[in-house]
């Protein structure tokens, strides 16, 4: 198990290095930040001087090595725009994004698990039909539109929940729903088909022959087996929520990392983009590692294997 974890960590490190290279090159292909930093009528000499002080005159591989060397010591450079360390900016915004992504994940699980399980148990029944319709609706509605609808209904008309900003629990409900809406459909389908497989298995039949109450068979003995494929996709969804959060963050004015990085991209604020993307990829790798480890908790065959 330990060597397995170490191997996964090594893979993760390689992925993070790859991601940092990619974002380094791509962000520099987006244009010259100096054009945005200096006045339009700045003389060429000033532009050249600025470029030299920022190190942007050197070959890109050298720039990357300098960046990587400094990053290892925790120095991601200063934001061009905010004149503060990019690292501080990112670390300042990261918790809000994690909070949003986790809440969205929780929302999607809370909806998808009962819907998927009940659809499987009452296969072909009305719950199954409702679940299918719901799943289709979920996939057909893009997050930003769901977000706007939620604001319209719950903030504007009903005035139940705040439309934007961060604060107490009430602030996170709408953005979490908007972000968690999409994966509900896929998760419901995964749980439904996994449950159908498990409910058809010999050990569930055996449980029935021994007089097990149906409720216990479904929620204890079957569900734990069906949870393995669900956990697999949870890691992927959490990661995609981190990445996809920026749309929802913009709509709900959520002070998260996604919004910060998008703003930094528009401003060609390379240090912030680099630090932001790097931390997102670290989170991605960590969440996938946690998923791998959680298999062992669910399935003893993996724990002992």
């Amino acid at each position: 198990m330990l060597s397995y974890i170490l191997r996964r960590v090594m893979h993760g490190v390689v992925s993070i290095i790859g991601a940092s290279m990619l974002i380094f090159v791509i962000s520099r292909m987006s244009g010259d930040p100096i054009v945005l930093l200096l006045p339009v009528d700045a003389p060429q000499s000033a532009i050249d001087a600025m470029r030299e002080t920022m190190g942007l005159d050197r070959p890109i591989w050298m720039q990357y090595l300098i960046f990587a060397g400094k990053a290892l010591t925790g120095d991601f450079g200063n934001s061009y725009r905010w004149q503060m360390p990019a690292l501080n900016l990112v670390l300042d915004r990261l918790p809000a994004t994690i909070e949003l992504a986790l809440s969205a994940l929780l929302f999607s699980i809370m909806l998808a698990v009962p819907l998927g399980v009940l659809s499987a148990v009452n296969r072909g029944g009305w719950i199954d039909t409702v679940g299918k319709g719901f799943a289709m609706l979920g996939q057909a509605m893009p997050g930003f539109w769901v977000g706007l609808l939620l604001i319209l209904v719950f903030s504007v008309h009903l005035n139940w929940l705040p439309a934007f900003g961060a604060g107490g629990v009430s602030h996170i409900i709408l953005p979490a729903i908007a972000l968690g809406w999409y994966p509900v459909a896929a998760q419901t389908r995964i749980i439904r088909s996994a449950m159908l497989d498990v409910l058809d298995s010999d050990y569930i039949r055996m449980g029935r022959a021994l007089g097990a109450p149906e409720r216990l068979l479904v929620w204890k003995y079957a569900f734990r087996n069906a949870a393995v494929p669900l956990v697999t996709v949870l890691g992927v969804y959490f990661a995609s929520m981190l990445g996809g959060a920026f749309v929802v963050e913009v709509i709900f004015a959520w002070p998260g990392l996604g919004r910060t990085v998008v703003e930094a991209v528009f401003a060609r604020d390379f240090p912030v983009v680099q630090a932001g993307v790097l931390f997102t990829s670290v989170l991605f790798v960590v969440s996938n590692l946690l998923v791998d480890l959680s298999y062992g908790l669910i399935d003893p065959r993996i724990r002992h294997g």
């Binding site: 298995s201 010999d202 050990y203 039949r205 055996m206 449980g207 022959a209 087996n225």
Partner: peptide, 15 residues
């Protein structure tokens, strides 16, 4: 009570 056909699949693998 019943003893089912296949002992390899009649036990729940995660309990």
């Amino acid at each position: 009570s019943m003893v089912s056909q296949d002992p390899l699949t009649s036990l729940n693998p995660v309990y």
